Computed example of a mutant assay.
Amino acid sequence: MTVPREYIGLWRREGIWRSNGSSDTTTLVLWFQSARWHIDSRGFAGATVVEGARCEWRPEIAFPALGPGIDAGTMRFDGAGKVEETGIDGSYREQWLRIDAGPVHAQRLERDDGALAWLITGAEWMAWAHGHPGGTAQFSIAKGDAATLPPGAGSGWRVSASDD
């Protein structure tokens, strides 16, 4: 299953406002979205499922570990470059600005030791996330034409699925 076209690209969070009154408009948070997978700079990566206005992120790796709850929100797009996400539990609202609409290519990789990885690339950027489910995860982001595994990615990776 793939996400609708308006989701695909590189997004920067403009701010988050929580129901407890706290907010954050200064922390840099990036969301890399391909047709099937996401990498979030806060430390998680995995599959994305969209049903109507509801978007759910299903991380397979995360560090620090995410709680047991569902990570889902209702999405309201404002043109092609902005989206407002409201948590399905009403606990937060986030504003996102699209930095790059694509084209985007992504691969999901596996290694014999059980490690998983995602490589998502755009015209001028790439995001790489790898780790063991339930263990530590590592993330890197690069600007420029760098559609290869970054230094320190290790070896033994095989592509298990691709958006292409």
Rank of each mutant, 00 (worst) to 15 (best):
A72P: 00
G52S: 08
R98A: 07
A47T: 14
W128P: 13
V49L: 09
D71L: 01
D164V: 09
E84N: 12
D113L: 12
V104S: 06
G90M: 06
A129V: 11
T148P: 00
A72Y: 01
E51I: 03
V83D: 01
V159M: 14
T121Y: 04
D145N: 15
T121K: 03
G46M: 11
R93V: 15
G114L: 01
Q95L: 15
S155M: 07
W128L: 11
P151T: 06
G73T: 00
V50D: 00
E51L: 04
D89E: 14
H130W: 05
P151C: 01
A115V: 00
H105L: 13
T121E: 04
D145C: 13
G131S: 08
A106D: 06
E51W: 03
L66P: 02
H105M: 12
P151L: 02
G73R: 00
W57C: 04
G73P: 02
A147C: 11
M75S: 10
W125A: 06
F139V: 07
P150E: 10
P103C: 07
D113G: 10
I120V: 13
G122A: 11
G154W: 06
A137G: 14
G79D: 13
S160N: 13
A147K: 11
R158P: 03
L109P: 02
W37V: 09
G102W: 13
G102Y: 14
A129D: 11
G135K: 07
E85D: 13
R76P: 03
G135F: 08
G79N: 12
E94T: 01
R93N: 00
A129Y: 12
T74L: 11
C55K: 03
R58H: 06
T86C: 04
W57G: 01
K82I: 07
A35G: 13
G67K: 05
A62E: 00
P68G: 09
Q95C: 11
W157Y: 02
W157H: 01
E84L: 12
G134V: 08
A115N: 08
L116N: 07
E110M: 09
W37C: 05
L116A: 07
R54K: 12
K143H: 10
E85H: 09
L66I: 11
W157T: 00
V29Q: 04
G46N: 14
L66V: 09
